[in-house]
């Protein structure tokens, strides 16, 4: 396994699960932003393509002790991604400042080895060519290329917005590598009406997310497997935090 770079900038998310109601606005905003095709029947969740999926979590107790929580799952942009080293053709990599795991569609041969490696199911395959209802393809944004069938895709943290923010900084004479908090946020972050997602540079103390990820109630999914995700979750509810990783019966949960 290859070693991975450390980056000066590390884009990350802090998602407050106590604020998410599972309304789905982020999922819709993601599809529209990233030119993901709609599906007339998306009831087979194992074959419906959406970079961001909201999982339903339950504390497993019967009524009336039952509690429910919703967990939006973008790509974790792992610090040590299990998907990158396995790709036979370097279609995915983690080499750009910011630490976003890239996926280059014209390079992908569609072997799906990366999908097998990802325990978060963050990677999706284009089982068919994407189609839009007649005329709806006119609403495609110019920012993200449309993927043909046969390639794997995943959340890119709306990487194009990063590029746009840098270009805007350049024409305004600012340093593109020192973006202000909020100059670059993902489509889901922007859309969430509850403000459940905070996005920014985890390494930059001027960004709100920097402190949030260090909070007492912050955790990451499957931390002990060593993937080192750049997406953090926050919940004051212990049972929610416990569902973030596998625990043996006698093990204590963090926070």
């Amino acid at each position: 396994m290859s070693s991975f770079k450390e980056f000066k900038i590390k884009w990350g998310m802090a998602i407050d699960l106590d604020k998410c109601t599972g309304c789905g606005a982020c999922m819709v905003a993601c599809q529209a932003e990233n030119n993901i095709a709609p599906q007339p029947d998306a009831s087979n969740k194992l074959k419906s393509l959406n970079w961001l999926v909201v999982y339903e979590l339950t504390n497993g107790k019967p009524f009336p002790e039952h509690e429910v929580a919703y967990l939006p799952r973008p790509c974790m942009q792992c610090g040590k991604p299990s998907c990158v080293s396995v790709c036979p053709v370097i279609a995915t990599d983690k080499n750009e400042e910011g630490g976003i795991v890239s996926q280059v569609y014209p390079r992908c041969i569609g072997c799906r080895y990366c999908m097998a490696s990802c325990p978060y199911h963050a990677r999706y395959f284009n089982w068919f060519d994407p189609t839009w209802p007649e005329g709806m393809d006119k609403t495609l944004t110019p920012d993200v290329s449309v993927r043909p069938r046969g390639v794997v895709e995943k959340c890119s943290f709306c990487h194009h917005r990063f590029m746009q923010a840098k270009d805007k900084a350049r024409v305004e004479g600012r340093d593109p590598n020192a973006l202000n908090d909020g100059d670059y946020i993902t489509s889901c972050t922007e859309a969430c009406p509850n403000g459940a997602i905070v996005f920014g540079d985890v390494n930059n103390p001027a960004h709100k997310v920097h402190d949030l990820v260090k909070g007492k109630y912050a955790f990451r999914l499957l931390e002990r497997l060593g993937t080192d995700p750049q997406v953090y979750y926050i919940s004051r509810r212990e049972w929610v935090r416990r569902l973030g990783d596998n625990y043996l019966e006698n093990e204590k949960v963090k926070g």
Partner: peptide, 20 residues
């Protein structure tokens, strides 16, 4: 493989870290 016409990438753009 999803894109058989690109299968030759496996030789040309090989990732030496991949077992595949």
């Amino acid at each position: 493989v999803g894109q058989p016409l690109r299968a030759w990438f496996g030789y040309w753009h090989a990732n030496v870290h991949s077992m595949l």
